[in-house]
Simulated scan of single mutants.
Amino acid sequence: MAGVGARSAAVGLASTLSWMLVSSALIIANKRVYSKGFAYPMFVTGVGQLASALGGLLLGWLSGKRSRSLPPLGWLVPTLGPMWGFTFLTMWLGNAAYLHLSVAFIQIFKAMTPAVTLVLAVIAGQERLTLPLLASVTLIALGTGGATFVETGAPSWSALGALFFVGSSFTEAARVVGSQRLMSAHHFTSVETLVYVSLPAAALLIGGSLVSEGTGPLLLLRGVAGALAPIQGELAYAAALSFLVNLTSFWAIGSTGSLTFKVAGCLKNLAVIWYSVAVSREHVSGAQLGGYLVSVAGFMLYTLAKSQPSGRAVAPAAGAEKAKAA
């Protein structure tokens, strides 16, 4: 049993670290696409979801493990439908925020998502609310709130961008909690989750872009090759990263649990902030960094709380063996 626990912990650590690396790279890649004037977040994320679904199908074929047959619509729509909607809203709202806010500030803002995830995980019965757990997540949220308050007076502040990102935080938390339930209650592997969630989400995102973002007329007038020519290299790179981000995120959620997965993202955000300040020369004030350090302190307390028996999840991180096999 100890050996199984150690292997599960190793799988969780490897998958989380992999997700942290590729998701940081994807943030920067998407920002580069937008900086070239292709300001269509639905289309960009839709291409990423399509690449994820196709990559999942290819991975299943190469491994010789076919995904389960398509379930009947009566089961499929109520079970996976919310996941499609949450993924669509998360990708659209989250990427739209990058058109209005700096990369560095968004990473500071992201520290609020563990608090949202905790609430949803408790409601879903995946976490047991304890005082140390509540205190740690509250610290994370307070640090974010302080950084947000400081940013409201900065030139890079946008109320619309903040509204987009708050919305994406709620839908992302719901998506992560739903993914854990999909892999625990319905025994989906990470690859099956990738295929069955990403393909419908891609259709929603690309379809929404054609209608609401005006990419339909753009592609008709210039042709797909002509419209994408200026950013085709960056878009292909971002799509490949999107596949890796989705795969490793489902792998990590199945191995560690939804709340631990979102809290680990706080450390990833610190690396993106450093990159934004050191390489992209974005401005982050001392007060903003101080707020983020409070959030990191909350993360450390969270790690301690989760190491205690009373802070463990009610529904253990499910699907670790299936995720490993996938």
Rank of each mutant, 00 (worst) to 15 (best):
V4S: 15
A10G: 09
V11R: 13
L13E: 01
S15C: 07
S15M: 06
W19Y: 14
V22G: 06
S24M: 13
S24F: 09
K31Q: 13
K36A: 15
A39Q: 11
P41L: 03
M42F: 13
V44F: 05
T45G: 00
Q49R: 12
A53Q: 12
L54G: 05
L59A: 13
L62T: 12
K65M: 12
R66K: 13
L73P: 11
G74W: 10
L76Q: 11
P78M: 04
P78I: 06
F86N: 03
F86H: 00
F88R: 05
M91C: 12
Y98Q: 14
L101T: 10
V103Q: 08
A104H: 05
A104M: 01
V116F: 12
G125H: 06
L129C: 04
L131P: 02
L133D: 00
L133V: 15
S136G: 02
T138A: 13
I140D: 02
A141E: 04
T144N: 09
T144F: 10
V150Y: 04
V150G: 00
V150E: 10
E151P: 02
W157L: 02
A159T: 09
A162V: 11
F164T: 07
F170T: 09
R175D: 05
V177R: 00
G178T: 00
S179V: 02
E192K: 07
T193A: 15
L194E: 14
Y196R: 13
A201S: 12
L205I: 11
V211P: 02
E213K: 08
E213N: 08
G214F: 03
T215S: 14
P217C: 12
R222M: 11
G223K: 07
A225H: 06
A225R: 15
G226P: 11
A229D: 14
L241Y: 01
L247E: 05
L247Y: 15
T248G: 00
W251N: 03
W251Q: 03
A252Q: 03
G254V: 12
L259F: 07
V263P: 14
L267W: 15
L267Q: 08
N269L: 01
V272Q: 03
I273E: 06
I273S: 06
I273H: 03
A278K: 02
V279I: 13
E282N: 05
S285H: 12
S295P: 13
V296M: 15
G298L: 05
Y302V: 01
A305H: 00
A305E: 00
A305Q: 03
Q308Y: 11
A317P: 08
E321Y: 01
A323E: 10
K324I: 04
